[in-house]
Write a protein that binds this DNA or RNA. Structure first.
Length: 143
DNA sequence: GCCAACGTTGGC
DNA sequence: GCCAACGTTGGC
């Protein structure tokens, strides 16, 4: 089971909205690198939710409740037959007991190659096992 | 197919 | 509000 990190602008769609709704379809991803990560997700994977804007912190954990599928609003396949604009559905797992800020992540040398730091504009990325464990520990999230 | 111009994102 | 980074678009 893999873990990913998803960025969102909290004024647009925040972790609290997901907790309130109980489920959501994570769409709107159009960046090529981010879509590759979306397509590699599988049902049962987990995602750390990161808020950009004023918060700039990991705020919660959610579960991927579907395999990637075509965005009904933008259907289409890639040359490989994968969904062009891949989306998944999510369900909330837990809010972070302690939000892990971007500043804290940047201050820790173990994150120096983490895409959140090195590729500021990437909105969906896989999180390796080591950093996943570390982030969950820092956030007070279940492992 | 290359490259310049432009737009968008996100941190400061 | 500004600026840097980077992706995308459009002309050639």
């Amino acid at each position: 089971m893999a873990t990913y990190l998803l960025k969102t602008e909290p004024s647009d769609y925040c972790f609290a909205d997901l907790q309130k709704a109980g489920t959501c379809r994570w769409d709107g991803v159009s960046n090529a690198a981010a879509l590759i990560a979306m397509r590699s997700m599988r049902k049962g994977d987990e995602v750390l939710v990161y808020h950009t804007g004023d918060e700039k912190a990991v705020v919660g954990l959610a579960k991927v409740t579907s395999d990637p599928f075509e965005d009904p609003e933008q259907p289409g396949k890639t040359a490989k037959g994968e969904p062009k604009f891949a989306v998944v559905t999510l369900a909330p797992v837990a809010a972070a007991k302690s939000r892990v800020t971007l500043a804290a992540i940047k201050a820790d040398p173990r994150f120096k190659e983490f895409p959140l730091v090195t590729q500021g504009r990437l909105s969906v990325m896989a999180v390796g096992k080591t950093l996943d464990r570390l982030l969950r520990k820092m956030a007070g999230l279940p492992g």
